[in-house]
Amino acid sequence: MKKTLKHCESYQEHSKQFQELGEYLDSLQIDQRNPRRKDTLIMTLHRAQMIFGYLPEEVQLFIADRYGISHADVSGVISFYNFFTVTPKGKIQVNVCLGTACYVNGADQILAEFERILEIKAGQVSADGKFSIESLRCVGACGLAPVVTINSKVYGKVKVSQVREIIERFLTEDLEVEEVSHA
């Protein structure tokens, strides 16, 4: 079955989120005949991921339609960047940098320790939707290698022995701070 915008039924369910994205797109004043209209696509995808938490197919179709570009176009851009995800991530997103500097400083063992404690592999989300782990390439903080980020917090010169403590501290202190600041 061929899919078009018409076939997407989840708009109603998430209508508030689609409304927010729609308003953002309105503010960009996209000219569908401008060959350079795609220049703001990455920004829009960032915003959409902020709103939805991930970029499901119906969001991609919605964006493609508003830009007057193909779904394939949007999908190709998403697939290029590690940051974008088409599957939901956990509420607490652990990112372990595996860039060269981090890797030679033992980042693979850090990643393994997170995987062991949280009982999920990189790329997976825990059953309760609370945690997800990703590995990524270079966050631009090589001086702090090995680097781990949890949501927007950055941890430098991480040792395997600190991993459990980092998780526990994040759960008790940082998560509360985050929730307060979002409220």
Binding site: Q60, S70, S75
Partner: peptide, 27 residues
């Protein structure tokens, strides 16, 4: 028509319909 895109990066890039969906489901 916009049915095809380069999906992914580097060695793993593949030319495919959006989201690697089968042709029969694509536009």
């Amino acid at each position: 028509v916009g049915a095809l895109t380069a999906f992914g990066r580097g060695f793993h890039t593949v030319v495919t319909p959006a989201e690697k969906m089968p042709l029969a489901e694509s536009n």
